[in-house]
């Protein structure tokens, strides 16, 4: 019977303070900062591999993946319905805000050509994935990090590892899949709500008609970019869950885990990851915009 390697609680030596210890601690801290992106990417690769294993084998090995399927179903339900109201609220507020900005600054310039609609349609590419992955980073990563930290604190990960159960991946793989799927659903929901809210607000302000908006929607290759948006959401989801994993399993032997610290660092890192991923993908889609405005 093959068994995963035993989880080993990291022990950080506590020594009396001194200049050498201080220097080593500083070097340690600098090294940790420098290596943290590498650690994150490494964890994301492991996670991706385990997700692929789960997706490929789960339909055939039903017993082996029974618990992952159970946790996946619960996580997906939780992530689909839990943040839906938040996504709706954020998109309504953003839709009205974008409409007001366009009305204030771009009325004269853009209303004749219908480019206002293009701005809306372009933001449809950028904003909903951002909102969806951002909301799910908070909802998907934070509870996982806190749960893992709690399990480290209680010694559950170690005791289950002795019995051959990898509790970390048991929780992380279904959650990463659930976050990925839920982020796509929420991005679509956000696109609809954001688009409708913005256009209705602009129509209410007498700036554009819904007909010109639909024409502009056809002009911009939103649908051709769906796969890119999907890749963006998948990347953000996996990295965000990897952040939760890295932060959650920072155990120090018998020392009590500081859940507040884990939560704060996790949410800050997850937000940074979401921002960076969305910015890089947004920049990759930007070349379309000037061409369309020029036309």
């Amino acid at each position: 019977m093959s068994r995963p390697a035993l989880a080993v609680s990291a022990l950080r030596p506590r020594t009396a303070p001194g200049w050498r210890t201080g220097l080593l601690d500083s070097l340690d801290a600098v090294g940790a900062v420098v290596l943290s992106p590498v650690e994150l990417v490494g964890m994301a690769v492991v996670l991706l591999g385990r997700m692929a294993e789960f997706m490929l084998l789960a339909p055939f090995a039903r017993d082996r993946f029974a618990f992952q399927r159970l946790i996946f179903a619960r996580d997906l339900g939780d992530l689909l319905f839990g943040p839906a109201l938040r996504v709706l609220a954020i998109c309504v507020v953003l839709g009205i805000a974008v409409a007001l900005v366009i009305e204030q600054f771009a009325t004269g310039l853009l209303s004749q050509t219908g480019t206002a609609n293009l701005v809306i349609v372009t933001s449809l590419q950028q904003i909903p994935p951002f909102v969806a992955s951002g909301v799910l980073a908070a909802r998907g990563a934070l509870p996982l990090a806190v749960r893992l930290a709690e399990m480290v604190d209680r010694g559950q990960i170690d005791s289950m590892a002795i019995m051959g159960v990898d509790l970390v991946m048991l929780h992380a793989v279904p959650r990463a899949l659930a976050v990925s799927l839920a982020s796509v659903v929420h991005a679509v929901l956000a696109m609809v709500v954001f688009g409708v809210t913005t256009v209705l607000s602009l129509a209410g302000l007498g700036l554009v008609s819904t007909g010109t908006f639909l024409t502009a929607l056809k002009l911009l290759p939103v649908y051709e970019k769906i796969s890119l948006i999907g890749l963006q959401l998948l990347t953000a989801s996996i990295l965000v869950v990897a952040v939760a994993l890295v932060e959650g399993i920072q155990g120090h032997g018998e020392e009590r885990v500081d859940l507040a610290r884990v939560s704060m660092v996790c949410i800050l890192k997850a937000a940074t990851v979401v921002l960076l991923v969305n910015l890089s993908f947004a920049l990759s889609r930007m070349p379309d915009l000037p061409v369309l405005v020029w036309r």
């Binding site: 019977m1 068994r3 039903r62 017993d63 082996r64 029974a66 618990f67 159970l70 289950m160 019995m163 051959g164 159960v165 990898d166 048991l170």
Partner: peptide, 16 residues
């Protein structure tokens, strides 16, 4: 029950 089944199914790979 699920807590009891977990190490048997996920750890020892017994049939359900």
């Amino acid at each position: 029950l699920e807590n009891l089944l977990l190490p048997l199914i996920a750890g020892q790979h017994l049939s359900r």
